[in-house]
Simulated assay, not measured.
Amino acid sequence: MYATISPSDLTPAPNPASVGAQRTSGAGRVSFKVNAEGQTRLDRLYQQGCAKIRLPKVYGGKAAEAVLINSAGGLTGGDAVSWHASAAAGTYAVATTQACEKIYKAESGVAHVANHVCVADGARLDWLPQETILYDRAGLDRTLDVQLEGNARFLAVESLILGRLAMGETLTQLAFGDRWRIHRKGRLIHAEAQRLEGNVAHIGAARAVLDGHLALATLCYCGPEEEETLKGLAESARTMMAPFEGCTVGLSAFNGKILARLTAVNGMALRAALIPLISHFRAGEPLPRVWTT
């Protein structure tokens, strides 16, 4: 026997225009400590939502690795992810990403990424995510907040690729903001704010901006070395970068840090210059394996 269903008994399908699109969110936290043998080991790990963290075995290097993964495969307007990395006294750790982060076209709003780093006295942490690829009409608001104690060492690299270059994509509209704040013993030692908004292809063509280059990166090293030592490191890095074609590099050493700006014709040229530059400031420590596989 079959029941009769009238049209009035049916629940009407939701109107797509009245339903907000699903957004992704995630939070990942990792901290490191020293074991009885003086080796850097995992202390605590927390992951929620799309934020995943993996800890691969490291061969041939001293630093423990944390590989940050956005399991959503990319970000768009309204998405939000936060990462926290901490290194206790005597540890050496590196945080990187499994792949390039992709920021897709946003119908509305921007994606939010908040990065937090704490490095104890006598510890070192290297923040080495792979490149972020910005698609046309993408929106991203990103922050990096770093707290250093005592003689902590910290190396940070953030890279951008403007558009899907292999597909000939041109960025006609973009909203990108990136803010860094680095403190040592509670005192602000580095602050910067970068913003690319509007027709980036047109803005970036200016010689004083990107000179037509489609990839850029910032590297910052903060350490306890004397000023003359830092200037020597910067000078040797400047000499190392001279042979790289299709890439412009500027380096400065001041106030207990070294700052480098790079622009390149494409992501391949940028990475070719970045890899030896990063290795230079890591005293020969090998790059995370995900960078080369």
Rank of each mutant, 00 (worst) to 15 (best):
Q98H: 09
T96L: 11
V113P: 08
A95E: 13
G78S: 02
C118G: 13
V67R: 03
R137H: 15
S108A: 15
G61N: 09
A85T: 12
T91M: 00
A111L: 02
R137P: 01
S108I: 11
G61S: 12
A87W: 02
H116P: 02
A80F: 08
G73N: 08
Q130K: 12
E107V: 13
A80R: 14
W83D: 06
A64W: 00
C118M: 13
A93E: 03
R137V: 08
A93D: 05
S82I: 05
A89S: 14
A87N: 06
Y135W: 11
L125Y: 06
W83R: 04
D121Y: 07
R142T: 01
H116L: 10
G90W: 00
A114S: 14
T97Q: 12
R142D: 07
T97S: 15
A106Q: 08
D126N: 08
K102C: 13
G74T: 09
C118S: 15
E101V: 05
D136C: 04
G77W: 02
G78C: 06
V81D: 04
V117F: 14
L68D: 00
A88C: 07
G74A: 10
P129G: 04
G77F: 07
H112G: 08
Y104S: 07
K102T: 08
H84V: 14
V94S: 11
L140K: 04
K102F: 09
E101K: 05
E65H: 14
T96W: 08
L128G: 05
C118F: 12
G73D: 08
R142N: 01
A93P: 04
A80M: 11
K102G: 03
A85Q: 07
K105H: 10
T91P: 04
G122K: 01
A72P: 01
A106C: 15
A120N: 09
G78I: 01
R124Y: 05
E131F: 06
A63R: 01
K102R: 15
A87C: 04
K62S: 13
A85R: 03
C100T: 11
A138M: 10
W127G: 00
A138F: 09
A88T: 03
R137D: 13
L75I: 15
A114H: 15
L140D: 05
A123G: 02
A63F: 00
A138R: 00
A89W: 03
A138Y: 11
A80I: 10
V113M: 09
L125D: 00
